[in-house]
Amino acid sequence: MLALLHTSPVHVPVFDALRDEAHPGLELRHLVAEDLLERARVDGPAAVACDVRAKVREAVDGGARAVLCTCSTIGGVAEAAAAEAGVPVLRVDRPMAAAAVAAGSRVVVLAALESTLRPTVALIEEEARRGGRSVGVTTVLVQGAWQCFEAGDPAGYVRRIAEAADAVTGAEVIVLAQASMAPAGRLATTPVPVLSSPRPGLAAAARLCRRGPGRAVPDREALRPGT
């Protein structure tokens, strides 16, 4: 069984649909803790580390063979819980970051939430070092997008992000930093590749789930593209 740690309930049907499409038979357990993101935005991800570890332990006690954290802001502290938990813990955006550095050296990160920018840039730079590549990363905070998300306007949220992607210049690859941004990749018309995290993140987590206990940061084989 694969446990998913979410900070918004909107992710539950998204990952259920991806499972049904690409990983039939994979048992998912969803843990939603909206307060973790709210607190991390104010005090930083480290401030919620103890509670994240508790959620990971809850997942393991419930039978999870691996845990996927779908929140980019707290993904780093979630992965750090793996050693104590004894099962692989993967942040959903790590496979996307690995794909981004493989796709080009000029990466533009789009985020709707400012607290996501720094962790995402750090992750891309980490993956570049792991892959022996040199990358330049620039960031764009999509103005007004998160307000649409909080107001329950998914169409406006996705439209603003797609427009921001289409306005990007000088990039070899565009990264959508938050899992909730994924639909914007289909709406954008830019010729630059636009990467999102849910599909490759779930695929990598499913492989880790099959493999069982392992490292906090998956090896390159676990992050390879595909289902």
Rank of each mutant, 00 (worst) to 15 (best):
G131Q: 13
G170H: 08
D43Y: 13
G63T: 12
V168S: 01
V10K: 11
P213S: 01
A54H: 15
Q143N: 12
V101H: 03
L187N: 10
D20Y: 06
P154D: 10
A171W: 00
Y157K: 11
Q178E: 10
E34L: 14
D35S: 11
D51Y: 11
R118V: 14
T70G: 03
A204Y: 01
A222T: 00
L117T: 14
V77Q: 09
V137R: 06
V56Y: 11
A222Y: 02
G212W: 00
P119V: 03
V142A: 01
A100S: 08
G25R: 07
P13N: 14
R130F: 02
L31N: 13
P154T: 02
P213H: 01
C71L: 09
A3Q: 10
L176Q: 01
P9V: 12
G76D: 15
R94G: 00
V168R: 03
D43H: 14
G185H: 02
L123M: 10
E221D: 09
S72Y: 03
A64Q: 15
S8I: 10
R224K: 07
K55T: 14
E127S: 00
A216C: 06
A17F: 08
A179K: 10
T70H: 06
S72R: 07
D93L: 04
I174S: 01
V89G: 13
L141A: 02
E125W: 08
P9Q: 08
D20A: 05
I174M: 00
R211L: 09
R224L: 06
V12L: 15
L26I: 08
L26H: 02
A177I: 05
A167K: 07
